[in-house]
Structures are given as C-alpha cells and as structure tokens.
Design a protein around this nucleic acid. Structure first.
Lengths: 253, 253
DNA sequence: CGCGGATTTGAGCGACGTCAAGGAGCGTGG
DNA sequence: CCACGCTCCTTGACGTCGCTCAAATCCGCG
C-alpha cells in the first residue's frame, strides 16, 4: 500500500519528518528531538490519492492511520438509502483514522477533495507510542478531544441555527481552518461543491444554493467555481453567532 | 468542593475505587491491580449534586474532571439568544470534563437530570497518568474517540434523518446506553422531558410531542411522566436505520 | 460539438415551527 | 383539606422555511 517502491530501492519518500513543511507553520506545535525521532520511524511511508478517491471506508478495519500532508479531504457517513452527512473536513496536519485504529472498525468514510498526500503510520505501533512517549500520547488525546469540540459546534449549528446562520458558520469555520493550515490560495478557499455544503449542513442542494445567494447579495462572499471567496469574514462570523476557533497552536503527529 | 469533611475527620468517601459498583458490570473493562491503585489515588473525592444543578459551565476553566458514578446528566451548548442544543447524555461510567481539562476552557456545559454522584479527579495529575500508565492513557484516548463516534451518529441523525427516524434513533440510543450502564429501572427509562428530546434532536417542543405520539400510535413506545417506556426496541431500531451500539465493553476511569 | 457535472431559478408543497389554550399532576402554604 | 402556582404534556390552527420537481444555463473536457 504505502511505502511501496517505485523503482529499484527507491521508496516514495518525498518528505522526511525532519523537514516536514507543516512543522514550520506557526499553528503547529514544535517537537522535541526525541519526539521527532519517534515520529520519523513511526512513519511508514506516504500515500497519494486522486481527487474523489476514498481513503477509508466505514465498516472497514484499517491497519493504518494517517496524517494529511497536503490537499483536502472530508469525513462522512451514509444512510442505507444514500443520504449523506459530512461530519468534518480534513486539512493538512489533521490525523485521519484514529477512531478506526482504536475501535475495531471505522465509523465513517474519508474521501479526497483534491489530490492528497498522507503520511502513513502503523496502527500496530500505537502501543509503543503510548508506552514510551507520554507527550505524544497526550497529543493524541488532545486531538481526539479537539475533534469532539468541533463536532459539538457543528451539532449546535445543524440543530439550532437557521440555514443562513449555518452557512455563514460553515464558511467562517472552513476559512479559519484553512488559514491556520496555511492553505488559503489567494482569495479562493475551499475546493468543494455546493452539494458538499448541503451535505455538511443538513440542507438540500437547492436551498443551499439560494442561501449562498443571500450571502452573496449581502456581499459577504462570492461563489466561484467549486469554492468561494470570502469578502467579509467578520460579517460572516457575526451573522453565524460563532465565536471562532479558540486554539492558537495545535499538536500533530 | 469535593472531599470536604462532613463532621470530624470523616470524608464523604462513599465508594473506594476497589469496590466501585461499576467495575462489576459486564460492560466495563477490568483494571489491573496497578491501574486500580493509581486510579484510587487519582480520585480526590466525590461530588453530589441535585437534579437541575449545573456541573460544568461552558467557558469555565475547571481544575477537575469527573466520572459519573450514579444518576443522569447531559452535555449542551447555548446560542446567545438561548437556543439550546444537547450534544449527549452522561451515564454512569462516563467521563465528564476531559475536553475542558485538555483545552483550556469547557466548550459545553453539563447539567444533572437526577441527583448525581461524581468521582472527582484532579486535572493536575493527568500528566502523571500519561507518563506512568500508558494503558490508562490509551483508555482516555479511546474514550475521546468513542465520544466522537457517538457525535458522528448524532450529526447524521440531525442532519439527515426525518423527525420520526431521529426520535426513534434517540430512544434506541438512550435505551441501549442505559442498559449497558445497568440502569434500566423496570420499564421506565430516561428521566428526561420532551423538551430535552426536542433540544437533542433539533426539533421544536410541539413537533417532538406530535412525533412521540406517532411512535406511541405505532405501539413502539409509551410516554410516561418524564421518561418513556420502550415497547418495541427492535421496531424502533428498525425505523431509525441505526445499527446500534457496537462496543461490548468500554474502558472507564 | 456533445456530454456530464455544477450551478441557477421558479413553482408548488409539505414538514416542521409558532402561537395559543387547556389539562393533568404535584408540592406548598393557608 | 383546598387553592394556587408550577412544570410538563397535549392539541388545534395556521404560517413558513426548506424540500422536491423541473428546466435552463454554464463550463471544462474529450
């Protein structure tokens, strides 16, 4: 799977952890040398997938977990009749598949929104991590608890905010996350379709479209070609009634 | 706060961990002697609160975390104008306040639905736990990831299930959890009002009432006095399109 | 040029919300 | 014992937000 040789002995090692481009971003915490050593050998390879590829499938048992290195992905669940709910988006630095590594099977699926590269870790080594690297173990727990925080806020949105508020919230949320992950390419954020937004917010595609139009009419954002441009981040945040991301720096692995 | 003396030297120690009533339940994992020792000294006392009391408040910084020993509670968030979203219910064996111990402040509040007893742990000792008890650290991560799993399913419900399906899901969910926590007192489950159900499912009180009526008409459940009786657990599960709880045994602290 | 995916827009409808009113159960004080 | 004031549950009437259906349009790509 990952770490396969492309030709001869050469593995697909694009990025040794020591030079991980994420580490230099202000929003990620620093590693000690010892931690870095461990993570470097914890990493088993890299995995690259196309846009639209499914990285993990609900119900599967996976021997790996991943950190997303570059690109965008999202986590979702399906109802038997095909209704889809997107739980969250996965950005560089985010851990993927921790839940599936701890429980026996994935409770959700993960799909790539763009071409994506992931660092591959072996689930079997998680035990070693917990035994020998308390600080990283702590980080893992932190990461899981942080995801819980985000889901709480999403739940509040879907359960209690109006369509307009929800949409403003989601755009603000994604915008802030993208900024902190260092991937706001100019004015265009988010490689997603309106269908993704609908499936994240629990709305229909048509109503999502009309709601986005209202936001555009208020000059808060502008939709363009699989994504949107944020015109008035403050206005959106205001409308959503959300407090914004709290954490300045986050751990990652 | 907790551990205060009631008279003379006698502390409110109702339950030494060695005799914790939860440990004998089939759904909780066993401790090794070493783990038990640590947890026993990690526990700083007990806290008892009345029905309706607020145990933790969103935005607060708490020096403690808790395991619920007996009773029912729930986690919720509020919008500035008072709209409330309940994220989950807290049953015996559940950890409360982990998120607030890892981040700096609570992202949600917790309120007691019945008189509640909690074991009190000190946040400051979490570091020791991670350093010396890898297996417990692993459990903490597991617990956080498990909560994530539950929130994923709730999100799916609120986002994509109809009012009838949602309600059937919630009743099934609470029923299964109550069973596995060993607190189904006869036929009456759940010390909650219809307002709680509404705030959990993102519905209005009136519509919740009408939806419960439909379930009752189908002889799936019967509402009675702050709670409900499950008449046809299978029928409810079926209607909800939920797969049911997966885990047989869960760790706790 | 043709095709498929994404976005738009209008029309009509239905699920769910709001408003309003009433009843049942219960604890408290007179 | 009774009256009262709560909280919670119920039900009807009516309004509306968001859904479904349907049809265009736009656009990148083969």
């Amino acid at each position: 799977m990952a770490g396969e040789t492309t030709r001869g002995q050469q593995t697909k090692w694009q990025t040794p952890c020591q030079q991980c481009p994420l580490r230099s971003l202000p929003s990620f915490r620093d590693f000690s040398a010892k931690e870095l050593d461990f993570v470097a050998q914890f990493k088993r390879g890299e995995l690259s997938v196309e846009r639209g590829a499914t990285i993990l499938v609900e119900g599967m048992h996976s021997a790996h977990l991943f950190t997303l290195l570059s690109g965008w992905a999202f986590r979702y669940k399906l109802l038997p009749d095909g209704r889809r709910q997107i739980m969250n988006y996965v950005l560089p630095g985010d851990l993927v598949g921790l839940q599936g590594s701890l429980m026996d099977e994935m409770d959700h699926s993960v799909e790539a929104l763009t071409p994506v590269t992931l660092c591959v870790f072996e689930r079997a080594q998680l035990g070693r991590l917990f035994e020998r690297h308390a600080s990283l173990a702590y980080d893992l727990t932190w990461i899981a608890a942080h995801e819980e925080t985000i889901l709480d806020e999403h739940l509040l949105s879907i359960g209690r905010r109006t369509a307009l508020e929800r949409t403003a919230y989601l755009l603000s949320f994604i915008h802030q996350r993208a900024r902190s992950a260092g991937i706001v390419g100019g004015r265009r954020v988010m490689p997603i379709t309106q269908q993704h937004i609908a499936d994240t917010l629990g709305l229909s595609l048509v109503h999502t479209n009309k709601t986005l139009r209202k936001l555009a009419d208020r000059k808060l954002m502008r939709w363009q070609d699989r994504g949107c441009e944020i015109l008035d981040a403050e206005g959106l945040l205001d409308l959503s009634g959300w407090e914004g991301l709290k954490r300045k720096t986050q751990p990652f692995i």
